[in-house]
Design a protein around this nucleic acid. Sequence first.
DNA 1: TAAAAGTACTTTGAATTACAAAGTTAATCA
DNA 2: TGATTAACTTTGTAATTCAAAGTACTTTTA
Lengths: 99, 99
Amino acid sequence: MKKIISKLNKAFDNKVRLGIMSMLMVNEWVDFKTLKEMLDLTDGRLASHIKSLEENKFIQVKKEFVGRKPLTSYSATVEGKKAFKDHLDGLEALLNIQH
Amino acid sequence: MKKIISKLNKAFDNKVRLGIMSMLMVNEWVDFKTLKEMLDLTDGRLASHIKSLEENKFIQVKKEFVGRKPLTSYSATVEGKKAFKDHLDGLEALLNIQH
DNA sequence: TAAAAGTACTTTGAATTACAAAGTTAATCA
DNA sequence: TGATTAACTTTGTAATTCAAAGTACTTTTA
């Protein structure tokens, strides 16, 4: 039990960050607006969670213009993918001991 | 994605509470000391998380004497089991979309 | 019989986290 | 010119988390 619990990463205990990382594991790049809509968040709330994931070096950012509009996109770093996978391993182990 | 995320319950975002509930899904009654050892916690930390789960009516308490020593045990309420199951369903759905 | 240890907490205080609401910048569209 | 879009940042408040210390009562040990 101690072993399982220790796999869980504090950076991913919040459901917004869990959702962001989940999106970025499945899609290489996801833009701000899509994340916002998929997770049903306000700008500020999304931005603050993105910031904390960036500070942990779990995601990276790309800014470009498409047509004439700015487009900010995010992707999980190698480090972020690894950390998230470890976290999911912990969750999976927890699911497995239920029943 | 919104649907998955909405299944996750704030009461279980902390890994200590995740661990406590997990123990109580698998074992009908677990005592204070065992929880403390299994989760590697200080008395105070365990007690505070237990308190929050009790306030949510997710666990119930039983106090007795065994031999001459006090023994406090906890078990998940029906409500607690349901809430935790829903949370695990959410986590499982999240695991499933990771490829 | 005095001191130490066991059981199960509670209290305090400080740090961190979370969030809503409002403000910002710079461009574009009507 | 005024509204809208895109992507934030700032502010302030509330909630959460935790370590550390304190409490109460009993039992064991020297």
